[in-house]
Design a protein around this nucleic acid. Structure first.
Lengths: 339, 339
DNA sequence: CTGTTAGCGCCTTCAT
DNA sequence: ATGAAGGCGCTAACAG
């Protein structure tokens, strides 16, 4: 039984089959140059017959540019990044560009290794989370000459273009809202052991406003692992068990905060009477909860889309020593019933 | 100002800089063959100085194998697939393999296009969701000779290796459990307009058991879009507003079911007194809810891990015309308070 | 231990 | 409208 498990067919194979030169096959495949109808039909038929699939390794090597975009995500355990990835993918695929990706697990060191790995594929562009990177990461990207976009955050100086929101301002806006509602004794519940630098910025914005107002932060509880409703519920239980529990809690994101709400629902604790809560992200599932969480809505899909366009469009001048572009995509404080 | 924005340095550049031949650079970089300490040090220094990054397009073309694995996901809007992706990525990155991916949006036609696009990169393997694919998809994969793994489902014949659970059996197990609890009039709430073939299999298993028991399905509500808590809550409200509402509802997944729970919590509807619910997936956030949902726990990370190993390890014989491998990773019905 | 030669599959350039 | 030559950057195979 002569299995067809030989090497994949090349343009040469098709050329032979169709009785033309390999170059003509190349032209037909790309729809480039002029080809007679007769030849085109024969080539297409031969290609279909042999099950030809272009070898992008070869074409990319020759053309010195790929249809790949590198994407680094801090984690896959948080749906926020799935949403950014979704925005990226949507836009990329419409241009027939594929995403290659890596996960940094919120470690800049890990990010550096992953960036190196990704750059080896000579992607057309690279998308990074946040504005903080090691010098080596920046150097490698600069040296490679690929286009860069940084997403999520705009508090800092982008390498080239940033698409996000001011995390610090989001923290401040939340604090102002809670202060207006009359709360004075605040607590914070965070995750990722402080490695999530965007969360740290929100926290510091929040604290600054609280301090300026003469109110106080009486508690700071940051769990080690990733955020989740379960961890949020657990942390809430611990915090409320203390004799000096704060009157209002700022959670580093909606998942943790929703867990806090669940603890209260299960234990007959009145929100916001006994304790007030606020989150961050504006995830859509909040709309399904019995108590609406006050949160900050962020344009995550849009961050992905804009970043994809940025690293992909030829129009913009990322080439020269242009000024970095900072696109503030804006957030919106969504008042709920939780504070 | 002579900007360094020239082409990325090649091994030739390093060779010149270090005063050796390009081949020696290649050897040092790969740690292959014997090289004197002196030469190695010089080459490494030169490489660092010039910011050298390997060009995998060239090495892969030459070696006729890449360190890329192609991954197709039905959607990024459901965290179940982020988890599978996480398992895949974890395992791949430990072997310095990068995932390239595409999203099919639950369309087999779309999947076919994406597979073609992915195969052009000559990945070492490809991971597909489910066992249903177009003939053209199967043919393209077979012709390319890449290793395949199919995840999530084992009800059918895999191309080569499947890592999942019996979706049909999961549906049947849920029905048996609910029947044991005494419910007789059932309803179903699904999503993705029936394009999620795994959900369809669960539903048909569920229905079969209900029918065999002489009980009945009195309602079948499948929404068009993706599943979400919000949609689940909305559907629950609609269903309970009917005069002929069922006593027990089977949801195609936990997100929808959790939305149903939220509707009941908000409206003082007793679970399971007035209505019973069951879900599917066993997402961890269920543990945070005030009412525990009866659901089926599935090993999603493990599916990703096993699939990654399968397409990646040289040991297994995917090459020949071996029998397909079916790995039933098993599910577990987790009894809750909801039925 | 190090260098030379050849070629992976494709596309650019230059003929015809 | 089609073909021939050459090379993208790398590594296998063979010399020395």
């Amino acid at each position: 039984m002569s299995s067809g498990k030989t090497a994949a067919p090349t343009m040469d194979d098709i050329a032979t089959e169709a009785g033309v030169s390999q170059m003509t096959v190349s032209r037909v495949m790309r729809g480039a140059g002029k080809t007679s109808d007769d030849v085109r039909v024969r080539v297409e038929k031969a290609a279909r017959k042999l099950g030809y699939v272009q070898n992008k390794l070869a074409s990319a090597l020759r053309e010195e540019t790929t249809s790949l975009v590198a994407v680094v995500l801090p984690t896959l355990k948080n749906r926020v990044f799935s949403e950014v990835l979704n925005g990226l993918n949507e836009t990329l695929i419409s241009k027939r560009i594929l995403p290659v990706f890596g996960v940094s697990e919120y470690s800049l060191q890990r990010e550096e290794e992953i960036v190196r790995e990704l750059l080896a594929w000579r992607p057309r562009g690279i998308v990074l989370p946040g504005l903080e990177h090691t010098d080596a990461t920046r150097a490698a990207i600069r040296a490679s000459g690929v286009r860069v976009a940084e997403v999520m955050d705009i508090d800092g100086t982008p390498m080239s273009a940033a698409f996000g929101i001011s995390q610090e301002a989001a923290g401040r806006a939340t604090a102002r809202y809670m202060l207006e509602k009359g709360y004075r004794r605040f607590g914070y519940i965070g995750s990722q052991g402080g490695r999530d630098l965007r969360a740290v910025k929100r926290f510091s914005g929040f604290c600054a406003v609280v301090r300026e107002a003469g109110a106080q932060m009486v508690l700071n509880r940051v769990i080690t692992g990733p955020s989740s409703m379960v961890e949020g519920r657990r942390a809430m239980a611990e915090v409320l068990a203390r004799s000096d529990a704060p009157e209002a809690l700022y959670f580093s994101n909606d998942d943790l905060a929703a867990g806090g709400i669940m603890h209260c629902l299960s234990n007959g604790i009145d929100i916001p009477g006994q304790v007030a809560l606020a989150g961050f992200n504006g995830l859509s599932f909040l709309e399904a909860l019995p108590i609406r969480l006050t949160t900050i809505e962020t344009p995550r899909l849009e961050m992905g889309r804009r970043a994809a366009l940025s690293v992909t469009s030829s129009a913009t001048a990322q080439d020269g020593s242009q000024e970095p572009v900072v696109a503030d995509l804006g957030f919106r404080l969504v008042p709920g019933d939780s504070c």
